[in-house]
């Protein structure tokens, strides 16, 4: 019986390897190869040209910074918007609830560029184009639904009894939120935030139209190379993009763990002190 889980984990490992690691291999080869032609399985000659271009271009790092800041601001706004919205929709008998949900979820179903075309003129008149703020606002449409969905599920499993209980122990609105609601929502928030960050990071069209070239994120640099047919540079950018996305997810996951471990740690300490 003991062999079974080991076999299973090996199987899982192979699965992860095939579906997660293998797709990166051609990207790595392409970004590092010099004249990698069929039928060579592995490039015959190597070159750092693509990486040199990507790494040495000051815009790359500027774009990384802008991409990440936009993603994080968007996510913060999403959290601030989605918590009260999910709370209201899940907890109170709102009339026409389905309509609210339909509006909030519509950006998932309607291609974002259609709505962006619409808001572009408005943003132009408001002077929001070519600004980070404008891009941030435009990114909210395609990302908010995911944050909202994650929080709705979290709220579904949070009975109001918990808050009533805290209330009866003398907790006002803010302490109730921080001691009862937030800890319960935390995993949902991290799940929603991961999606929100990833989706924001991957926006090209919206950033391009609203940012109008003045807000240069990583996809803005990357896309011309994909369409322009320079697979070397495109691969290098893609890998950099993937690395940043993965790193962000790891950092957020670690933050959640730390959040939960802070409590566990005090517990361990207390256990150690006890005679």
């Amino acid at each position: 019986m003991k062999k079974h889980p080991r076999f299973l984990s090996l199987f899982l490992f192979i699965g992860v390897f095939i579906f997660v690691i293998v797709p990166f291999v051609p990207l790595i080869f392409t970004s590092l190869s010099f004249g990698w032609r069929w039928p060579d399985v592995v490039p015959q000659a190597w070159s750092l040209r693509a990486w040199e271009y990507v790494v040495n271009d000051g815009r790359t790092w500027q774009a990384v910074g802008i991409s990440l800041s936009i993603a994080l601001i968007v996510t913060a706004i999403n959290i601030a918007l989605a918590i009260p919205a999910a709370n209201a929709l899940m907890r109170y008998p709102v009339r026409g609830k389905w309509l609210f949900e339909a509006i909030i979820f519509s950006p998932i179903i309607i291609p974002p560029f259609i709505s962006v075309m619409g808001i572009h003129l408005t943003f132009l008149r408001l002077g929001l184009t070519e600004t980070v703020l404008g891009v941030v606002l435009a990114h909210i449409a395609p990302t908010l639904p995911y944050m909202f969905r994650a929080l709705m599920i979290s709220y579904q499993t949070l009975s109001t009894d918990w808050e009533d209980q805290a209330r009866m122990l003398g907790a006002g609105a803010m302490p109730r939120f921080f001691h009862v609601v937030l800890p319960h929502l935390a995993p949902g928030i991290v799940a929603g935030a991961s999606l929100s960050v990833l989706i924001s990071l991957s926006q090209y069209l919206i950033t391009f139209i609203i940012g109008a070239g003045q807000v240069v994120t990583l996809p803005i640099l990357l896309f011309p190379f994909i369409s322009g047919g320079d697979p070397g540079v495109a691969s290098a950018y893609s890998l950099l993009y993937a690395a940043i996305a993965i790193l962000t997810l790891i950092v957020m996951d670690a933050a959640l763990r730390r959040y939960y471990q802070r409590n566990k740690a005090t517990k361990e300490q207390a256990k150690g002190v006890k005679p």
């Binding site: 706004i77 601030a80 918007l81 918590i83 009260p84 919205a85 709370n87 209201a88 008149r125 408001l126 002077g127 929001l128 600004t131 703020l133 404008g134 606002l137 609105a173 939120f177």
Partner: peptide, 25 residues
Amino acid sequence: MKIYPITAFSIVALALSACSSEGAS
């Protein structure tokens, strides 16, 4: 709880108005 949407909305509105004045020059 009910104050959050209002606060969020006013922040956005403030930011909007701050930017639009800049674009008008």
